[in-house]
Amino acid sequence: MTSVLSVQNLCKTFPSHGDDFKAVDGISFDIHAGEIVSLLGPNGAGKTTTVSMVGGYLIPTSGQVIINGINRYQDKFDSKVGIVLGGELGFYGRASAADNLMFFSDLARVPRKEQRAEVARVLDLVELTNVANKKVQFFSRGMKQRLHIARALLGNPPLLLLDEPTSGLDVEISAEIHRIIKQLASKGVAILLTSHTMSEIESLADQVLLIGAGKIFSSGTVADLIKQSDVHHIDRPATLEESYLAIAPKLRRP
C-alpha cells in the first residue's frame, strides 16, 4: 500500500551554546490513507518539531518528508496538507464563518468558481452549516475548533496534521471532535495526531509512536504498547496511561 506520508530519517538540529542540539534525530514512519498515527512523548521529545517539518514550517537538517510521492523539500511541492493548531486565534472575529473560509480558500488555492461549494462542503463536514453566517467572535471554543478543522479541509487535502485537537475542550465537545476525526479517516484522510490525552489516543490512534530525545523509542497499536510496558493487574488490563508512565522515564533526555 502506498503511503500518503513517508518520513525518512528526519533530523533537525539547532545550535545551542556552541553545541548542536538534536531536536529530532533520525525519525522514520509512514501513514497510509485512512490511518491515524499518534505521536506520544514528554515535552521536548521532538513531537512539535516533527509536525512542523511535515507541515512545512521548519526545514529539516537532513532526511525526507514525502507526501503523495513528492519530496516536500526537494521537488516542486504542490500537494495540500491540512494543519489544525487550534486555539482562540486564527480567524477574523467580525467576519462570519463562511466569509473566513472564503478568504482561506484563496490561500488553499481552491479555484474561485468552486469556493462557495467548497466552503459549504467543509462546514457541513464539521456540522457548522447552521451558523455559517454567524460572526466568529460569538463562537464558543468548541465551535472555533471545528472551524479550524473546516479550514484545514479546504481543498480536500490527503493529509491532516492535528496538534492537540481537543486541548481545553469539555468532554462532550471533545467527543464530537473525535467523531469528526474518525469520519475523516473513514473517508481516506491520513492523519498525524499529537496529544497528551491518553483517552484520546486510545479512542483514535491506529498506531502510536513513542518518542523520546528526538528518536522513536517504540511503535505499535495501543495494545502493543501496553504489552511492551510490562504493567499487569490481576483484575483488569493496564491502561495506556499506566503503561506510558512506566515507560516515560526512558523517554526523557539525559
Score class of each variant (00 low, 15 high):
Glu88Met: 06
Val51Cys: 03
Arg72Tyr: 10
Ser219Asp: 06
Val119Gln: 03
Asn68Ala: 06
Gly142His: 14
Leu184Gln: 07
Glu172Gln: 15
Ser174Ile: 08
Ser219Tyr: 07
Thr239Met: 09
Asn9His: 12
Val119Ile: 08
Tyr92Val: 15
Glu241Gln: 15
Gly69Leu: 03
Arg116Gln: 11
Arg109Leu: 14
His178Val: 11
Val37Thr: 10
Gly26Trp: 08
Val4Ile: 13
Pro165Thr: 08
Gln8Leu: 00
Gly142Asp: 11
Glu241Asp: 15
Ile27Ala: 10
Gly93Ile: 06
Thr129Met: 15
Leu10Gln: 10
Ala45His: 06
Leu160Ser: 02
Leu161Asn: 02
Tyr57Asn: 14
Ser218Cys: 12
Val37Met: 06
Ile66Ala: 14
Gly90Trp: 15
Gly93Pro: 15
Leu160His: 02
Met1Gly: 05
Thr61Tyr: 12
Asp163Leu: 09
Ile216His: 01
Gly82Pro: 08
Asp25Val: 04
Ala117Gly: 00
Asp75Val: 04
Val131Tyr: 10
Cys11Pro: 01
Val37Leu: 15
Gly41Arg: 06
Val84Met: 09
Ala23Thr: 00
Ile180His: 07
Leu204Asp: 02
Thr50Tyr: 12
Leu10Arg: 14
Asp235Met: 09
Gly87Leu: 01
Gly26Pro: 02
Arg72Ile: 03
Val208Gln: 01
Met198Gly: 12
Lys47Gly: 06
Asp78Glu: 14
Leu85Met: 10
Gly168Val: 06
Ile36Phe: 13
Met198Asp: 14
Val7Trp: 03
Asn71Gln: 11
Ala185Arg: 09
Phe138Cys: 01
Glu35Cys: 05
Tyr73Gln: 00
Asn68Asp: 13
His32Phe: 03
Ala23Ile: 08
Glu202Asp: 13
Thr239Trp: 04
Ala108Val: 07
Gly93Leu: 12
Gln145Glu: 03
Lys182Pro: 04
Leu251Ile: 12
Pro157Lys: 06
Glu200Met: 00
Leu89Phe: 13
Ser167His: 06
Arg109Pro: 00
Ser219Val: 05
Leu10Gly: 11
Ile173Trp: 12
Phe217Trp: 10
Thr50Ala: 07
Ile191Asn: 02
Gly87Trp: 10
Thr49Glu: 07
Ile66Lys: 13
Ser195His: 07
Ser174Asn: 00
Gly90Phe: 13
Arg112Trp: 04
Leu153Ser: 12
Gln137Met: 13
Ser6Lys: 11
His233Trp: 12
Leu160Glu: 04
His232Thr: 02
Gln207Thr: 12
Gly34Val: 12
Ser62Pro: 03
Met198His: 08
Lys12Asp: 01
Val7Asp: 09
Met143Val: 06
Thr48Tyr: 10
Ser38Val: 01
Arg141Asp: 06
Gly90Asn: 08
Ser195Tyr: 11
Phe91Tyr: 09
Arg179Asn: 14
Ser229Lys: 04
Gly82Glu: 15
Pro42Gln: 01
Phe29Ser: 00
Tyr244Lys: 02
Asn100Thr: 15
Gly93Glu: 11
Gly46Tyr: 13
Leu245Asn: 06
His148Cys: 13
Met102Arg: 14
Leu160Tyr: 01
Ser105Ile: 07
Leu193Val: 05
Ala23Trp: 11
